[in-house]
């Protein structure tokens, strides 16, 4: 089980969290103007990074807030914003 560092509650067990997938996926500014291809990209296509992945988690059983972490998808090490030293895993 991973220990996930909630920015507001500190490191907590993975069972308290809900996974949100890739970070920084924003709703198209003008949805009416988006082509089918781009709409499909927005809906269905996400990075599937092997290595350090920037992703969203929700502290569902805690403060219920969303936050972003960087996690290595091969080791589960979780990093602070720009640090290369893991804070939890």
């Amino acid at each position: 089980m991973m220990l996930i560092p909630c920015p507001w509650c500190g490191p907590r067990n993975e069972t308290e969290f809900h996974y949100g997938g890739q970070a920084d996926v924003s709703y198209p500014a003008d949805p009416q103007a988006v082509s089918d291809v781009d709409w499909a990209r927005f809906l269905f296509f996400r990075a599937n990074t092997k290595g350090i992945f920037t992703e969203r988690w929700n502290h569902q059983a805690g403060c219920r807030r969303w936050f972003t972490v960087r996690r290595d998808t091969t080791t589960n090490e979780i990093f602070h914003d720009d640090s290369h030293e893991a804070v939890t895993r």
Partner: peptide, 13 residues
Amino acid sequence: DSYNSYGQRGSFH
């Protein structure tokens, strides 16, 4: 397991 991973391991829960 809910999260993306290439680790060939999952969580105990």
